[in-house]
Amino acid sequence: MSERLEAKVDNAVSLVTAAAEILKSEEGEPAEKLSLILEELCKASPDILNMHFDDPSAVSVAFSPRKNKRGESNIGVSHKDRSHWKNPYVKDGISVSGLVQAVGASDRKIVNITKPVYSNGRFVGLAVAALDLEQIAAQVLKGLATDAYQIGIFGRNGEVIFSSGKSVPLHNLSIEERTHRSFTFSNAEYYGYVRPLAVTDWSVGVFSRTVDRKTVLVQLFIRNVFVWLATFLAAIVIGFLASISVVRAVEKLTRQMTAARILPDKSEKIKSPRELVQLQRTYGRMQ
């Protein structure tokens, strides 16, 4: 699951990086042209709700889609108070936010991926993409049995960015153990495992009720006992059948030796096992 999620986020980061390069090279072009470019980029990833370019004053100069659901233009809107302008000068160049409530272009909770754009040392603006986290989560969880498990995506401070259901109250879980690569959550009723992602400071976790986990362990134990018993019985049957073959071969050799025959007659000829066949030939040569 973490690998699927990483791939989705990494794809979105690549598109925002491409958008930033375009803004740098096409700075000053009409909003119509820039918006067309953003529309083409959005088509490459259905996980992105919208993309936009903001100038240094935090005003959108290009946007895809160009209008919101109310029919109002998304271009020329000030984003100064939006979450992606709280820290526009990101040191490593890319910023992936936690869960934020979108206003304006969208009315749902989103995750913003932001990249500042510089040209000859001058701050040109921001390239921003809003991720549809529900769409991403649906694709990540596709084909996975989620009825018995609760899937959670966590932000940098452990806040819940996404939760696949209400079977496990993720907000009430506390960290039990943490290492540089992973940490587990548990209490008397729930158990889970969380893995950090490489492309962002998120983590993805899988949780289940302790009672469900115990049920799985009991079922696994019963299944293993059944397999062991079946293997043991099969070994007994195979050993018994093999012993019959050996006993019959010894009886044939005994009859030949009692009669002191160099060559065994038809009823005394041994066909298996190989060691007794060799022994019968050696006895004949000795005679």
Rank of each mutant, 00 (worst) to 15 (best):
G71N: 07
G152S: 14
E159G: 11
E176K: 14
V100K: 11
I136T: 10
T146C: 04
A129E: 03
V128S: 04
G121P: 08
R178K: 15
S78G: 10
N157I: 04
F183N: 08
S119C: 04
V100N: 13
V96N: 04
L173C: 04
R181H: 14
L126N: 12
K115P: 03
I151D: 02
V160C: 10
P116G: 04
E176S: 15
K115Q: 13
N68Y: 02
F154L: 15
D132Y: 02
I113M: 02
I161K: 10
I151N: 00
D81K: 12
Q139W: 08
R108Y: 06
T184N: 11
G71E: 04
G125I: 03
L173M: 09
Q150Y: 04
G76L: 00
L131N: 01
S119W: 01
F162Y: 15
K80D: 11
R82I: 05
S167H: 03
N112E: 08
K91I: 12
Q135D: 13
I175V: 15
N120S: 14
N68A: 03
P116Y: 06
V117T: 09
A148D: 14
V124Y: 01
F123Y: 14
A138D: 13
Q101N: 11
T184G: 06
L144S: 13
G71A: 08
Q139T: 12
A137S: 12
P116I: 05
S83M: 09
R178S: 14
V128Q: 03
A145M: 07
S97E: 09
K142L: 12
A102Y: 07
R108H: 10
S106P: 00
K166D: 15
I113C: 04
K109L: 00
A145W: 06
V168A: 11
E176F: 00
A148C: 08
F154T: 00
D147E: 14
A129G: 05
S182D: 12
R82H: 11
A105T: 01
H171Y: 03
V90Q: 07
A148Q: 09
G98M: 01
H171S: 14
V124I: 15
E159M: 05
F185M: 15
R70P: 01
G143I: 10
A127Y: 02
S95C: 07
S167P: 01
G71M: 06
S97Q: 08
V160P: 03
L141C: 00
R178L: 12
Y149A: 09
L144Y: 13
T114Y: 00
S73E: 00
V168K: 02
